[in-house]
């Protein structure tokens, strides 16, 4: 699954200024924190993320996919939270040592949203923000330009790295390599014929890439950003609407309800 990689689309979120999306991300985080003890109040935040996934062209189904993918971990976490609050509220049902109360369930749901909502917001941010704009935004946030460049260069090189890993895995499997054969330690060792060729390729690519970077004069002067994002009316409206919505939810979440 490559859910967080940039996807070229012409959607609402793709058109937004990365700064507007960063403010939105922060607001999602604040609203999730404020509603973490009452899952019902967290529902609007989660719903807004499902809408954001649709508006970024990724599809609302991705939220379900991410939840299913991490289901064992999320189930464990929410059950732990529910059992930690089993002394408060009315008992709904008990399952062996596990007692679930209405209050415990609300907290568990709130914590579930606290974990999953910022993750979904980051997925929307990364898949709708061009690596070029990401470098620009990171530099504006004070990240050293060479680190910002390294990060976006790595993101840009990732598809070819993934392709190389897949090619090596396919080639080794065709030669009879079975990754799932033997005990845990043997299975670990089975990965050696994959890792070694991939690293050998990396070693030969390093000089090629450094010469390319040199002939593109990377890091020599303060870079001009000609495709710099420009703040438009829609960004202002988006930030305003987000502030009102998430601000309202956060205020509601902080009010004692039980």
């Amino acid at each position: 699954m490559s859910s967080g990689l940039y996807v070229e689309r012409e959607t609402f979120f793709h058109k937004l200024d990365p700064r507007a999306k960063l403010v939105w991300l922060l607001l999602v985080l604040v609203a999730s924190i404020a509603t973490q003890f009452n899952g019902l109040k967290g529902i609007p935040v989660f719903a807004s993320l499902v809408v954001a996934l649709s508006l970024s062209g990724l599809g609302a189904g991705l939220a379900a996919l991410l939840v299913v993918n991490a289901s064992a971990f999320l189930a464990a976490v929410t059950l732990v939270w529910a059992s930690m609050y089993s002394n408060q509220g009315n008992l709904l049902f008990s399952l062996g040592f596990l007692k679930i109360t209405d209050y415990g369930l609300l907290v568990a749901l709130g914590k579930f949203f606290l974990i999953i909502c910022p993750v979904l917001a980051f997925v929307v941010f990364f898949s709708s923000t061009k690596p070029y704009h990401l470098t620009w935004a990171l530099e504006r946030l004070g990240v050293p330009s060479k680190i910002a460049l390294t990060f976006t260069l790595a993101l840009n090189l990732l598809p070819s790295a993934l392709r190389a890993v897949k090619e090596v895995i396919d080639a080794q499997k065709a030669r009879g390599l079975a990754l799932d054969r033997g005990g845990p330690l043997q299975r670990l060792k089975n990965h050696l014929p994959i890792i070694v060729p991939v690293i050998s390729k990396l070693l030969s690519d390093v000089w090629d890439l450094s010469m390319v970077l040199a002939s593109r004069f990377v890091g020599l002067a303060k870079r001009t950003y000609v495709f710099e994002p420009s703040w438009r009316l829609r960004d202002t409206l988006f930030v305003l609407a987000s502030t009102i919505f998430y601000g309202g939810v956060a205020t509601w979440g902080l009010q004692p309800s039980l």
């Binding site: 940039y6 260069l153 020599l220 002067a221 870079r223 950003y225 495709f227």
Partner: peptide, 21 residues
């Protein structure tokens, strides 16, 4: 494969003059 390192041709073409400031 190693010489085209951005995600858009336009950005790729702008890279050298951008890096020269």
């Amino acid at each position: 494969e190693m010489q085209v390192i951005t995600r858009s041709v336009k950005e790729e073409l702008a890279m050298v003059p951008e890096n020269l400031g």
